[in-house]
């Protein structure tokens, strides 16, 4: 009789471990997939920026530094996002992406602020279209980021619960990093300024 009870306990433990493990794997995949949503939008934004610079260049002859800063920020953001998409949730990669995105938003904000003083640029059809595209992409990024953060949160909570935390430790389910909104309130406003 004791044998049956012990066996029963062992079996229950094994099954519970398997169930928890599977759940953690699925939740990890879920937030990784949620990141690919952000990734699509980020790429779209990175593709738009060179076009923007191209258009702006014609008008802002004396603002080379600002333009270069935008290009540079964009390039380092591209790198950071490539790293992050290889391993979404990884604290280092996510922090890099957060920082790079913050730089890019800042540089873009300065560019748009400067463009205020170029009326011809403001009236340019291409510029208006790009502006619209960029802010729409910005919105999509923030929506996708919310979904990603929800998924990361669900995963993190589930891996910290007992007894999941033991299994998470055994099979190396590390904590995932949220993707914070990189924009300070004024930066957030900047790309959306209508001319």
């Amino acid at each position: 009789m004791t044998a049956i009870i012990i066996l029963g306990i062992i079996i229950a433990i094994v099954l519970a471990v398997i169930a928890i493990y599977n759940r953690l794997v699925t939740q990890r995949n879920r937030y990784k997939n949620a990141f690919s949503q952000i990734d699509v939008q980020l790429k779209r934004r990175y593709d738009l920026i060179p076009n923007l610079v191209e258009v702006v260049k014609g008008y802002m002859k004396h603002e080379r530094e600002t333009l270069e800063a935008v290009i540079q920020a964009r390039n380092s953001a591209v790198n950071a996002s490539r790293q992050a998409s290889g391993n979404p949730g990884d604290p280092g990669a996510m922090k890099n992406l957060n920082a790079a995105e913050g730089m890019l938003s800042g540089a873009l904000g300065r560019l748009f602020a400067l463009s205020e003083s170029y009326p011809d640029l403001k009236a340019n059809q291409n510029m208006m279209q790009l502006q619209e595209e960029l802010s729409s992409t910005e919105n999509r990024i923030s929506f996708a980021r919310q979904a990603f953060n929800d998924a990361v949160m669900a995963y993190n909570i589930s891996r910290e619960k007992f007894p999941n935390t033991i299994i998470a430790g055994m099979f190396n389910f590390t904590e995932a990093q949220l993707l914070e909104s990189t924009e300070t309130p004024e930066e957030r406003k900047a790309p959306k300024v209508s001319f």
Binding site: L7, G8, I11, A19, N22, R23, V25, T26, N29, N33
Partner: peptide
């Protein structure tokens, strides 16, 4: 018999419950 049955049935039930979460779950795993 009891032990084996528990293992197999338990394992099946755990899996089926997990799979009930739908196609996305299967595709993602």
């Amino acid at each position: 018999g009891f032990a084996t049955l528990c293992i197999i049935l338990g394992g099946s039930i755990v899996k089926i419950i997990a799979l009930r979460r739908g196609g996305q779950y299967i595709a993602e795993s």
